[in-house]
């Protein structure tokens, strides 16, 4: 197809300038942290901004082992995928039920769930930690996973519901006439159709859980169990680590999210791989 741009050459340059400013604004904070992570504790106070005179990697060694960042990352890599899997299944089932099934109080229950999606964690934190303790799940991965799934599911359910609600009802009707069970309709017709949205909520779920702080702080009280986000929050603090070491810890903590992004970029970007005019 013809390549037409609505931008004049001047506009095109202006747009590029805006984009470059945005990119620089996004990357500068990262530069700040990366350059600090390569400086010695003695160099940083006198040279906080410029590139390190002689880059050192001690801070990384220190953060990774003494600061347990590797251990924390492994912990996150265990809890979060399990949490996301549970969350996707729960949101998928509930989203389908709300979006395409008929039952008493459907709307009221849905509104209740929607209402929950707005709840601040701090409002729940004290009671949630008490509940987890009553279930003897304090200091367990399961405890924190349950709290995450419970807390983040309403939002995922909401997204799945709107998605299913928008699907033509004829698809369900046709399947039903074929005599398929509801489980079958969900698993073999609806879920595959909803795959892009499932990928979306999985990513939202992954990020939400990976970055979660208040619940994990109260439930995972043992150092060896901490998540990477909690680890960072613990390292920063009143008598906390110096900026170079904290920076190294931050860079280590960035690795997994960045890798996930690189590996799953296609899904994260919802499969949009072409600009409109190139279609």
């Amino acid at each position: 197809m013809k390549k037409v741009s609505p931008f004049s050459p001047t506009a095109r340059i202006l747009v590029q300038i805006v984009m470059i400013i945005l990119v620089v604004a996004s990357l500068l904070p990262l530069y700040n942290v990366i350059s600090a992570s390569l400086k010695s504790i003695d160099e940083y106070p006198t040279n906080p901004v410029l590139l390190p005179k002689a880059p050192i990697f001690d801070n990384y060694k220190y953060a990774a082992f003494a600061g347990h960042l590797i251990r924390f990352t492994v912990n996150s890599l265990i809890y979060v995928p399990v949490g996301v899997a549970l969350y996707v299944v729960i949101c998928l089932m509930a989203g389908y039920a709300f979006g395409k099934m008929r039952f008493a109080f459907r709307r009221s229950i849905f509104l209740l769930v929607l209402f929950m999606s707005i709840f601040p964690q701090l409002l729940l934190a004290t009671q949630v930690s008490k509940l987890i303790s009553l279930m003897h799940l304090t200091n367990t991965g399961l405890g924190v996973i349950l709290s995450w799934v419970a807390y983040f599911s309403p939002f995922g359910t909401y997204i799945m519901t709107t998605y299913f609600a928008d699907m033509p009802y004829e698809l369900v009707e046709a399947a039903r006439i074929d005599g398929a069970s509801q489980v079958r309709i969900l698993v073999s017709i609806m879920a595959p159709l909803a795959l892009p949205m499932i990928a979306t909520i999985a990513i939202i779920g992954f990020q939400s859980m990976w970055n979660e702080l208040p619940f994990s702080m109260l439930i995972l009280q043992q150092e060896s169990l901490r998540t990477v986000t909690l680890g960072i929050a613990v390292l920063r603090g009143e008598y906390g680590l110096r900026v170079p070491i904290l920076s190294a810890a931050l860079v280590i903590a960035m690795i997994v999210p960045l890798l996930i992004f690189l590996l799953f970029q296609r899904y994260i970007t919802l499969g949009v791989t072409a600009g409109a005019m190139k279609g």
Binding site: M217, Q221, Q222, A233, V234, R236, Y239, G240
Partner: peptide
């Protein structure tokens, strides 16, 4: 079992 807890006193 010595556990390092948050240095931030509020936490």
């Amino acid at each position: 079992n010595h556990v390092a807890q948050p240095t931030d006193s509020t936490q």
